[in-house]
Design a protein around this nucleic acid. Structure first.
Length: 803
RNA sequence: GCCCGAAUGGCGGAAUUGGCAGACGCAAAGGACUUAAAAUCCUUCGGGGGCAACUCCGUGCCGGUUCGAGUCCGGCUUCGGGCACCA
């Protein structure tokens, strides 16, 4: 009767295959428990991947025992740059390498013994799937949300590819770390900014980690301010700026425009042209990294001035690269006294600095050494002198609106989404370019536009997609007029498939719609979404955007896809994230062989709080393996010595159920595992003390253990004479009345320091307890006077003494 | 620079609303069993002092509130994460 994990786990894997335990009988409520689907890399799964998958499976099985039918699917995010780069590296086509990686991942993933419904498996590279990825794009195109734009883009010279702002966030390619440059190119864009307000407002509805909600809000970056227009002196041209500080208008002493702005050419005088052109050229050549790292202000005077509408003063117009062309209007008013960047710029180029806010801090100072950003009383501002910042803001906006040179406005940091890639391994963008009709969407009936099978899939130096070279694919008749036309050769980014895949699981084989209304109504939205925090912004924001768009066109009936989100922490090895290049990858395969899936599942949770990064230590798994062995032995030895329930066994059982359940509900899964160890130790003690124990205690423990260690639980369930699966049962419940013990041990303190303990009956009156405590501490209380006696029922007695 | 989060033994961590700090494990040491090893079982395991009963110190640092602080408040330090010339 030894615990043989290999035999037991094989037996139950087979058994579950033949007799599924997660069955929809049509009466159960649904629970949609989703993992972020993986990109199937060639490296394979490591124990870090397992963490989230184990967590979601424990949750799924717990919900099953609570009477839910659980949708717990899995699929593959298989398009995209990493898959293509890997294929190029080993000199093979991405299609077969991706298929192989998927097969290997799937085999490995099955080692977890999760209750995945493989009949719903999806793969973003499957034409039956990307047909709908293309369909969504087509709908966005029809609704004006997808558009083409010639624009300077982040170009990675190493990947030979345009990157989204998000992929080149710090001026470096997210994938290869190469420094990116700017390149003008025609791109497809998605108007995610149209949804900025809704994406921001609905964050409040989400049961997500506060951190993630804040990151999304910051990314959208809504700010409140005003647009103000300044007339260019001697012309009737206007320069409009966006500012959050219209109140400082009297302190605006110069204007600055971004080098890339169209305004530059319009305001530059003949005399300054050569200088300005040179500056614009230099600034344009600077990479994002340089522009960030090199914070020394640079700029050049355009030769023109404009007029401050508040006081009629002339303001020089400068070009400077600290102004961003794609935020606000690409032009700012320079208020050196109350903006640190403007202060640095004005100081360097000798522009006037006019203080308009006086505070205790700045009062009496004749010259500033830095800008003042705080509140205070306005000065030098005839129309709103004496007001504070909030009041001055209102006054300034009212003034601007009255005089017609400005208005209240809001602004966002969120930019439209660069949606095209000049690469092979992605969904072809389903539009056709016709000389006569312009850009024409591929008719729905012709979807999917298949990704052609080609020999040469490497990216090109020209920045054109490899698809452009395939004449027989590119040249098609225009769907509208029939004239010769050309297909769009750009593909979609990897985000495209992952922005909606969770919908497809509801109805994965539907050929008519992306998922039927009935299926969506039944399953969506996702009740629990589990994945890494690295997707806190991009994937989750894109998926929310897609969902809102699909809601608007009536394809889905909910506006938020993921009700609840959980970010598991990373598993670290030697303090670093596991990666092939670091050489610190720990594979689950050998551990399953040696200790079994059950042990590994439990250790993944035991290693630390699930939301926190944890260092992996192979030797720790011995602890849970030993625990399972001890439990196995305990059941084997004690099951046949049943006893009637006693007060002790009932307390143990109810307390166990209460503890485990509340810890599980709060996702404190590391303490659930330690709880199992603790209670099985206690159960062992009680059994030996009583010479046997109520079988119900064992039964409840095995049932609660089953989501964590499903194989051994099934085996024990069967061996203790139960027909059918442990998962056919119900999660045990506790009796509140039995959680209270008759007697408790309380601590006795003197001046807050523990001096002794005392066993008391819980209903002992206060005076009685204090008397017992005084007696027990008699020796230590001798010769001192008791100033105060504190008794917290069931917890402590504290004597405050003097002397 | 701004915004979050964290800090507890040799290690991972526990302490659910302020109430016996170190649960549960790992590692280590000693012992039992064994020809031996592995496995298993038992014991010890924050630091100082003491033969001992016991006692003092101890949750990053300084201070405060409280009968009582890992937990609350104020001020720091260090580490991790996010954003970063966003006007």
């Amino acid at each position: 009767m030894k615990y043989n994990h290999v035999e037991i786990e094989n037996k139950w894997r087979k058994n579950w295959e033949d007799n599924p335990v997660n069955v929809d009988d049509g009466t159960k409520p649904k629970f949609y428990c989703l993992d972020m689907f993986p990109y199937p890399s060639a490296t394979g799964l490591h124990v870090g991947h397992w963490r989230g998958y184990v967590l979601s499976d424990v949750l799924a099985r717990y919900k099953m025992l609570q009477g839910f039918y659980v949708l717990h699917p899995m699929g593959w995010d298989a398009f995209g740059l990493p898959a293509e780069n890997y294929a190029i590296k080993i000199g093979r086509h991405p299609k077969p390498t991706t298929d192989e990686n998927v097969a290997a991942f799937k085999k490995q993933l099955q080692g977890i013994s999760a209750v995945y419904d493989w009949s719903r498996e999806v793969n973003t590279t499957d034409p039956g799937f990307y047909k709908w990825t293309q369909w969504i794009f087509l709908k966005m195109f029809e609704h004006g949300l997808a558009y083409e734009k010639e624009m300077p883009l982040n170009w990675c010279p190493s990947c030979k590819c345009v990157l989204a702002n998000e992929e080149a966030a710090s001026g470096q390619c997210e994938r290869c770390q190469a420094v990116t440059t700017k390149k003008m190119q025609r791109q497809w864009m998605l108007r995610i900014t149209n949804y900025a307000d809704r994406l921001l407002e609905d964050i409040a509805k989400l049961d997500w980690p506060e951190k993630v909600k804040k990151m999304q809000a910051d990314w959208i970056g809504k700010s409140y301010g005003a647009q103000l227009s300044f007339r260019v002196d001697g012309t009737d041209k206007q320069i409009t700026v966006y500012t959050t500080r219209p109140d400082t208008l009297y302190g605006a002493t110069f204007m600055t425009i971004a080098p890339e702005s169209e305004l530059v050419a319009q305001v530059t005088t003949e005399a300054q042209r050569a200088k300005v052109d040179e500056y614009v050229l230099t600034a344009g050549a600077k990479s994002a990294v340089d522009r960030q790292a090199d914070r020394d202000k640079t700029g050049v005077f355009t030769g023109s001035c404009c007029v401050n509408p508040a006081n009629g003063e002339l303001m020089q117009i400068w070009v400077a690269d600290y102004v961003l062309v794609d935020y606000g209007t690409g032009a700012i008013m320079g208020v050196p006294a109350h903006d640190q960047r403007d202060f640095e710029f004005a100081s360097k180029f000798g522009l006037p600095i006019v203080n308009v806010i006086e505070s205790e801090e700045t009062k009496g100072k004749t010259s500033l050494i830095e800008s003042y950003l705080g509140d205070g009383v306005f000065v030098n501002s005839p129309r709103w002198n004496g007001l504070d910042v909030a009041g001055a803001k209102e006054a300034a906006i009212a003034f601007a609106e009255e005089e017609g040179f400005g208005m209240r406005t809001v602004n966002y940091r969120l930019r439209d989404w660069v949606f095209s890639r000049q690469r092979y391994w992605g969904e072809p963008i389903p539009v056709i370019h016709c000389e006569h009709c312009g850009v024409v969407g591929v008719p729905e009936n012709d979807l999917p536009v298949p990704l052609p099978d080609v020999e040469a899939y490497e990216p090109t130096d020209t920045g054109e997609s490899p698809l452009a070279a395939i004449d027989e694919w590119v040249n098609v008749p225009c769907p509208k007029c029939g004239a010769p036309a050309k297909r769009e050769t750009n593909t979609m980014p990897q985000w495209a498939g992952s922005s909606w895949y969770f919908l497809r699981y509801a109805d994965p084989h539907n050929d008519e719609v992306l998922a039927s209304k009935e299926a969506l109504r039944k399953w969506l939205p996702v009740d629990y979404y589990v994945g890494g925090v690295e997707h806190a912004v991009l994937h989750l924001l894109y998926a929310r955007f897609y969902t809102k768009f699909l809601y608007d066109i009536g394809a889905v009936e909910f506006e938020e896809p993921f009700k609840r989100l959980f970010n598991q922490g990373m598993i670290l090895k030697n303090g670093a994230k596991m990666s092939k290049s670091e050489g610190n990858v720990v594979s689950p395969d050998g551990l399953i062989e040696k200790y079994g899936c059950d042990s590994l599942r439990m250790y993944e949770l035991f290693v630390g709080p699930p939301e926190v990064d944890s260092e992996w230590d192979d030797s720790g798994i011995d602890g849970v393996y030993r625990f399972l062995n001890r439990l196995w032995k305990l059941v084997a030895e004690q099951w046949d010595k049943p006893a009637a329930p006693t007060a002790e066994s009932e307390f143990l059982r109810n307390k166990m159920i209460y503890d485990i359940t509340s810890r599980l509900d709060n996702l404190r899964l590391n303490t659930v595992v330690s709880g199992f160890m603790e209670y099985s130790n206690k159960l062992g003690e009680l059994t030996r003390a009583q010479g046997g124990v109520d079988r119900k205690v064992f039964e409840d423990m095995i049932t609660m253990l089953s989501p964590f260690a499903p194989h051994i639980s099934e085996e024990l369930w069967q061996r203790t004479g139960h027909a059918g699966s442990v998962f056919a049962g119900a999660w045990p419940t506790y009796d509140e009345a039995k959680l209270a013990q008759d007697s408790v041990e309380i601590a006795l303190q003197i001046n807050g320091k523990v001096r002794d303990t005392l066993d008391i009956s819980v209903d002992n009156p206060k005076e009685d307890v204090l008397a017992q405590a005084r007696e027990k501490l008699a020796a230590k209380l001798e010769g001192v006077s008791i100033l105060k006696e504190v008794y917290v029922p069931g917890k402590i007695v504290n004597f405050v003494v003097k002397g």
